[in-house]
Amino acid sequence: MDRRETIKSMLIGGIAGGLMITGCQPGKEDETTSTETTSGHYGRTDKEKEHDAKVMSETFFSEHELATIAVLCDLILPATSTAGSATEAGVPEFIAFIVNDMTSNQLPLRGGLMWLDHRALSLHNSSFAECPSSKQKQMLDEIAYPEEADPGVEQGVKFFTRMRNLVLTGYYTTRMGIDDLGYKGNTPHVWDGVPESVLAKHGLKYDAAWLAKCVDQDKRTVIAEWDAEGNLIT
């Protein structure tokens, strides 16, 4: 019996001694105890699971809108020699979800996509997605730099800024994006200060008196004991 099992049985034991009321409904116990892995879980309550399922069952964008989003995704973050593109990272699917989770995105994105198509139709007699990439980039050049944009395309600037934000956040929160960024954490380790090479580069160093107050990582598994004055002696 592992520790978790012990605590669960203590909980049930406790309840059995009192009234037969717990938060767990009959039958739920089996479901949770049979769960051996964490895959698919991210710590949702029942209510949150229902909410997630509902949001995920909803479809907002049309096929044409999704196709245009996919084109925009890969113009914003195309593949490089070392990292995949935004569509390869599943960013269009993320955007399709997030507009149902944060519905205030729906109107600006739908309207913005239509704005872009209208622009493409006016200039090139074709929808944005069907324009050749050189023409697509020409149109993005008009709206991708807020400080330089012509006042006549401000609505397009607003739309593209929103789209770029969602594409980047959708990308850098995937395995592919985090690998590209190089984030090294979210893994058990032992923090023992800034690497020497980094300190040197920044012209900084640890103060000796300060370091004396810091943990000796070689002794971190030795149980703490103090003298009567609160000085650590182990």
């Binding site: 978790r4 949770t32 710590g43 995920m56 989770d101 944060m102 956040t169 995937t174």
Partner: peptide, 22 residues
Amino acid sequence: FFDPAAPEQQTQMKWPWESPRR
């Protein structure tokens, strides 16, 4: 009831993509 060690309740060490809203 809540125990941060319970697999179905744990959020520690999850990656952002494990949440659909990141």
